[in-house]
Amino acid sequence: MNIELLKHLVDYGVILLLVFMSFLSVWFFIERVFFFKSINISIYKNKRNLEIALTKHLSIIGTIASNSPYIGLLGTVLAIMLTFMTMSSGDIEATKIMASLALALKATAIGLVVAIISQMFYNILARYAEVIESRYDEITEI
């Protein structure tokens, strides 16, 4: 198989996975925000059921936040390995190598962006959930 084709498969495969993960993160964030805005806490019989409803999909966002840097780093490592393979085949043109290494780092950068955004989403939603649970506690004390 051609090394250039393999580079593109690794590069775009990892980036496509990270874009998909960011789409999931945004989707679940929007879904949770709408859920939190429309929730009627008085219909929940106990706090545990409320907590389960509030934290639905939060673990997915948290998992995306914690794993997307690793996926980006994996893409970078694979792309650098392929660059070294290209170098070992005798194709040692400095500009080509530097361009390949720079492109390899974009996977890590995209992974970090996805992680930062997903972590912000997670923190915002976790805080909303805490506030709603506090309101539930106030209602049940009365």
Rank of each mutant, 00 (worst) to 15 (best):
D91I: 11
N46G: 05
I39S: 01
G62Y: 00
L103R: 12
I142W: 10
S25M: 00
L82R: 04
L105A: 10
L18H: 02
M1Q: 10
F35A: 15
K106M: 08
S22G: 04
F23M: 10
V26D: 01
S134F: 12
D137C: 11
A115F: 05
E141W: 08
I139C: 07
Y122G: 04
L74G: 04
L24Q: 07
L54W: 04
S134N: 12
I15H: 04
L17V: 14
V19F: 11
A53S: 15
L16T: 10
L125C: 09
I41C: 03
T63V: 01
I41R: 02
F34R: 14
A107N: 10
I30K: 06
E130F: 08
Q119P: 01
E138W: 09
F121H: 10
S88M: 11
S134A: 14
A53G: 07
I124W: 06
N40F: 09
T76I: 08
I116T: 13
I132S: 08
I92V: 09
L101A: 07
A102M: 11
Q119Y: 08
M120L: 14
M1D: 12
G75S: 11
E31M: 14
T55G: 10
S68I: 00
I117G: 09
V33W: 06
I64Y: 00
S25G: 03
F28G: 01
V113I: 14
L18E: 00
I110N: 03
I132H: 11
H8V: 12
V14E: 02
N40Y: 09
T95R: 07
A94M: 06
G13C: 06
E51P: 03
I92R: 01
N67Q: 03
L73N: 05
N40R: 13
E141A: 11
Y12R: 09
K106N: 13
A65V: 00
I132Y: 07
Y128I: 08
T95S: 13
D91S: 13
S22N: 04
E31R: 12
I110V: 15
P69C: 02
R127F: 12
K37R: 15
I41T: 09
V19I: 15
T140E: 07
K45S: 14
L74E: 03
S38A: 14
A94T: 07
I142N: 10
I41Q: 02
F23S: 07
S89V: 05
P69A: 02
T86A: 12
S118K: 01
N2Q: 10
L17G: 08
A129Y: 03
M87D: 01
V77I: 15
S38C: 10
T95F: 04
V33N: 08
G72C: 02
F28P: 01
L78S: 12
L105Y: 03
W27T: 14
V114T: 14
Y44M: 08
L54A: 06
A94G: 01
A79K: 04
V10T: 13
S100L: 09
A102E: 08
L74T: 11
F29D: 00
L17F: 12
F36A: 10
V77W: 04
R48Q: 15
T86S: 12
M21T: 08
M98F: 06
I15Q: 13
L58Q: 00
I30G: 02
V131Q: 13
F20A: 12
A107T: 15
